[in-house]
Design a protein around this nucleic acid. Structure first.
Length: 247
DNA sequence: GCGACAG
DNA sequence: ATCTTGTCGC
């Protein structure tokens, strides 16, 4: 299997990365509604890491938006391209995620990623960055509110409350399951906030997190295990070798 | 200056 | 993100 390298010119310092964000943030498109929920394709992307082995595994899983059945999936394995720095997550995830998306046999439709879009210190999180680089409609669904504030939404699935940076609404806290902690939805690229919420609800008939991220999460972990196995001393032998009984 | 901080 | 067993509940 091939390994995705760090792209030429990829920022090496936090200062360079912030400069890239400041340059690209203007290319985010916010005035399109995006595809209607329940039709076409919806694709989840996620990434898993093994920092000790310097490995990143990304997965892209395409679902039929109406049935939530898996239509296609792809993975890519690469080297870690950036350390984790709050606000600079995109530089850690994007090269391998883009490689996985490129390996899909069909158009991804709407992309759903872990993390934020507009809900970001410079209003340019992973979802916006991925959208600008691919041109695809992208939304972000995060598990945590980061540094933002929100009032607790009502207890029923579907209830939501603004996610606030001061007084600016950068996304929404959305209850996807009765009585369960909300998820945090923000716009990435070419999708309205209301439509992003509708998509998120359509993707959560049973669990708190969207089916897209659940499927992508499971797949990228699988891909990482296999890659780590091939990388580790002893390689595939290690996994299939049984220790002889002692004494 | 110190602490907090998507994944 | 990742380290990690059992356990409470539908």
């Amino acid at each position: 299997m091939t390994t995705v390298g760090v792209p030429a010119g990829w920022p090496a310092t936090e200062e360079e990365a912030r400069a890239v964000q400041d340059e690209l943030r203007g290319r985010v498109v916010l005035d399109e509604p995006g595809p209607p929920p329940g039709s076409g394709h919806v694709t989840g992307v996620d990434v898993a890491y093994d920092d000790a082995l310097d490995l990143v595994a990304a997965a892209a899983v395409v679902l039929d938006a109406a049935t939530l059945d898996v239509v296609a999936e792809a993975t890519a394995v690469g080297r870690v391209s950036f350390p984790y720095v709050p606000g600079l997550l995109a530089f850690r995830e994007i090269p391998t995620v883009v490689a996985a998306l490129e390996r899909l046999p069909c158009p991804p439709g709407l992309v759903v990623c872990d993390g934020y879009g507009l809900a970001h210190p410079r209003r340019f999180g992973l979802a916006g960055h991925l959208g600008v680089l691919t041109g695809l409609p992208v939304i972000g669904v995060a598990k945590n509110p980061f540094t933002f504030t929100y009032d607790e939404p009502g207890p029923a699935r579907g209830a939501s409350a603004p996610l606030l940076a001061g007084t600016e609404e950068v996304g929404r806290a959305l209850r996807t399951r009765d009585g369960v902690k909300p998820v945090f939805v923000s716009v990435g690229h070419r999708v309205s906030l209301d439509n992003a919420l509708a998509h998120t609800l359509a993707l959560t008939p049973r669990y708190r997190l969207p089916e897209t991220t659940r499927r992508a999460d499971a797949l990228c972990r699988r891909a990482l295990r296999q890659a780590a196995q091939r990388t580790a001393p002893g390689g595939a032998q290690e996994a299939t070798t049984r220790q002889a009984p002692t004494s």
